[in-house]
Design a protein around this nucleic acid. Sequence first.
DNA 1: AATGAATGAGGATTCATTCAT
DNA 2: AATGAATGAATCCTCATTCAT
Lengths: 191, 191, 191, 191
Amino acid sequence: MPTTKKRNTKVIADASKEKIFQTAFDLFALNGYSRTSVDAIAKKAKISKGLIYHYFTSKEDILRGIFLRFVENTSLQMTGDGSLPPKAALKQMIDFSISFIIHEVKLSRLMIALVIQPDVIKGINKDMSKLREGWWGVLIDLLKKMGYKNPEAEGYFLGAILDGISLGYIAMGKSYPIEKVKRLIKKKYEL
Amino acid sequence: MPTTKKRNTKVIADASKEKIFQTAFDLFALNGYSRTSVDAIAKKAKISKGLIYHYFTSKEDILRGIFLRFVENTSLQMTGDGSLPPKAALKQMIDFSISFIIHEVKLSRLMIALVIQPDVIKGINKDMSKLREGWWGVLIDLLKKMGYKNPEAEGYFLGAILDGISLGYIAMGKSYPIEKVKRLIKKKYEL
Amino acid sequence: MPTTKKRNTKVIADASKEKIFQTAFDLFALNGYSRTSVDAIAKKAKISKGLIYHYFTSKEDILRGIFLRFVENTSLQMTGDGSLPPKAALKQMIDFSISFIIHEVKLSRLMIALVIQPDVIKGINKDMSKLREGWWGVLIDLLKKMGYKNPEAEGYFLGAILDGISLGYIAMGKSYPIEKVKRLIKKKYEL
Amino acid sequence: MPTTKKRNTKVIADASKEKIFQTAFDLFALNGYSRTSVDAIAKKAKISKGLIYHYFTSKEDILRGIFLRFVENTSLQMTGDGSLPPKAALKQMIDFSISFIIHEVKLSRLMIALVIQPDVIKGINKDMSKLREGWWGVLIDLLKKMGYKNPEAEGYFLGAILDGISLGYIAMGKSYPIEKVKRLIKKKYEL
DNA sequence: AATGAATGAGGATTCATTCAT
DNA sequence: AATGAATGAATCCTCATTCAT
């Protein structure tokens, strides 16, 4: 049964790779990329350092993998599948964003860290820019459909609000009045 | 004579310390704190590594010094001296912020890096929080005086916008439509 | 049937082993022994790393195998089968050597690397010495038959010339005036 | 006495740097460049690894330093100062070379290793080529002055002999009949 | 005040080899 | 015969910090 065998092996392989992914993600999000050593990942994942380099070409490569997975996982939820009417879609985007900001603080922090570190992680920067501009493109589109006169500026404006809230929430945690601010946003966009 | 001597020495000492300050600031802003080595600072400042540790107890201590100085230098410009009427003061804060975002990209990046790295530089975190909350306190105060119903949320809202714009400008540089967004802000607050 | 099967298996096995041989040889010659990883051999040969250790006990063992095969392949061409008269045999040796130096630069380099690295590949060193001394023994013999007074010294002398030319050609490539030097050799030995 | 102080410091500094030089040289010559670890150098020199990187930018940099020193030390002895008549100068070159081959086997081996490893030590390769071609240039010049018809080929020929002898002596040690071969050379050039 | 030699604990990465399947 | 996951020691290099002078 070569098929079964193969699948087994694959599953096992995936188990290790997955462990590396998860552990690296936890540590990157917790302590930041550069303060997380490959050694620390190996130790926490209880695997050998060598195995990490069996699955990834470099520490940066792990980060790239994590980032791409993040993109996959969030894109659809973030921007929707285009089936909703503009107003509902905008509402969903904002709700998802605020929810993400609240529940994924560490991940948000990691992503912002990537944004502001241009050269460190070169391979990711382009994708990161694309992602952000993609999101904002969707925002702009929605605002256009909703009849805003200056959808581009409005899109960047709303994008900035969400980014800024994320930063504030990272800095202040639960003492940040995120719900109140959210209500202001909804009021502004009549949602 | 001793007095003069002392003052002279002090001046010379200050010259060295100042050089360290300036150089470290440049490098931190340019390459980030962790990617700047004490050695690099010494070399660029054309002084010895030992001298740095004569004036500062650690690399972190340099950053602390830079940060405190930054606070001193910007606070007044940012928040004004209280002599302006609320609307003018708000206008000044926004203008200064946008100008700072545009002209001090590297410094902005450094500051945001400090915000999102809680533990790295422990001594700074409190001051940083105070600073941000101070700014926002002033904002809230102004909005209150201007008659806004929900000045707290509005203050955090405006603060978030400015932070978000900063992040966007760091990420995209001149392709970020900062002037257009600025106009939206001014329109929103009727400035 | 079992016989055929066995033979088939053998042939397949040989095919894999042969692939390893060839690939390892190429890479050793191209990049040197120590800079060639077992992994690189496996990848280029499109077989698994494990299979290499099925056929060879170690990386060194591969090199040993390559070397022995090299000895087998070149010895006859180098020294002839003893059927030629001394002068013709000497001419053949020189012609073959020069041709080898020109057309097998990488292999020459690998062989010289083995000569000057005594301990690295212990198993080979003896064979290498035997080989060289074998060649020179034949040289000495030929020169003796040709009537040279001091055939031993003359043999080592000629051997040194050929080695030195090889080194020069490795170092300088086509800018080395190998043909002119060859003519000097032929003139010296009246060939 | 800043001068004295400085000189003292310099001397001490030189002592450490010199120790690194000597130790690295010994180990490189004994075991080869790539099989000598920076750690091994540090341990044998009884200094910290860090100090090595205080004086040298890389392991390769140490080798470069050793090589340059070698060039300085041998060039004059090898090629003379041009004051001798051609025949005497040629004699001196040959004598020095043979003596070097006999007494500096490890160093010879290291140098040959450098010649045949093109890319490994990139910075050195050019200098190495220059050095060799410089020596041979002198040889050619001398042979020209001595009235040889084809001085270029003759120069390369003699150069090859000396290189070849070096290789032979490295491979065989004292069982290599170097004196006999030397006599043949002298006879050939009527020295 | 000032120097820079010296340290040693990491940090990322490579690689020959083993082993379960 | 064949795979490739897994190991762990070794390697080059960086860097904050200390200290004698």
